[in-house]
């Protein structure tokens, strides 16, 4: 059911999935999914819509429980992780940014108050470093989230994740509803993030064939079981 290029599973795997299954209304959408994600890897997932790509990423983020199968992060079963600590490392960016109302800077700083992130401090300069190559400056931080375009909101949602320095990013079609300029900015930002530290990796779901060429070293096809 699942066609992919097998990777030897080793202890250096960042994220490992064995025999994962997804059911909808009692019928399997896909079953027996194995995958291994190593540090530095850029993995893309391609699947027709309605085959549970988002569900897979939500399972990997621990937002829903897998119907069957196991997920390991750093060789430790997902169930043995404290969820906030796990999600601080394996972070999901949804297709829709869904930012709370407020000023951009306050929203970016808010996550630093969460218990898992208390050892970190919010650094405005780091945000500006992310924004500069995209031609944005400090004024952007003073804006209210109400007035952001879809592309800008997604950019802020992404920077919010990056500031917390996860090891794995789960990207659920992050650019599907964006224009090409915004898509380019998101790809550029993510590329720089991945290069900055060899311990990082991502799983990126994308419909767009040419995008998969740009953002992935390896592509998994998730095909329907029916």
């Amino acid at each position: 059911m699942i066609a992919f290029r097998p990777t030897p599973s080793g202890s250096d795997a960042l994220l490992e999935v064995r025999g994962l299954g997804c059911y909808f209304l009692g019928r399997p959408l896909w079953r027996g999914l194995d995958l291994t994600l190593h540090a530095g890897e850029r993995l893309a997932i391609n699947a027709p819509s309605g085959t549970g790509k988002t569900v897979l990423l939500r399972m990997l983020a621990g937002l829903i429980n897998a119907s069957e199968g196991e997920i390991y992060f750093e060789n430790r079963l997902l169930q043995d992780w404290s969820m906030p600590a796990y999600r601080a490392q394996v972070m999901l960016l949804a297709q829709q940014p869904a930012l709370p109302l407020g000023r951009v800077e306050a929203i970016l700083a808010a996550a630093f108050a969460y218990r898992t992130h208390r050892h970190r401090t919010f650094c405005k300069n780091q945000v500006l470093e992310y924004l500069q190559p995209l031609g944005r400056n400090e004024d952007f931080l003073a804006q209210h989230t109400d007035y952001l375009s879809g592309g800008e909101a997604q950019l802020i949602a992404l920077i919010r994740c990056l500031l917390l320095e996860p090891r794995v990013l789960l990207l659920d079609e992050p650019t599907a509803s964006l224009d090409s300029a915004s898509t380019g900015q998101i790809e550029k930002l993510l590329d720089a993030w991945l290069r900055a530290n060899p311990g990082r990796a991502w799983i990126w779901t994308s419909h767009d064939h040419s995008q998969r060429g740009r953002i992935a070293d390896r592509v998994i096809e998730l095909s329907g079981a029916a």
Binding site: L63, P84, R87, M91, L92, A111, A113, Y114, R115, L164
Partner: peptide
């Protein structure tokens, strides 16, 4: 739901995500 789950995805506890 989307906003709450986005907050949970960042590593917030359920209470931190539900607080607002």
């Amino acid at each position: 739901r989307e906003r709450i789950e986005a907050t949970l995805s960042l590593g917030a506890t359920r209470w931190e995500a539900a607080h607002d």
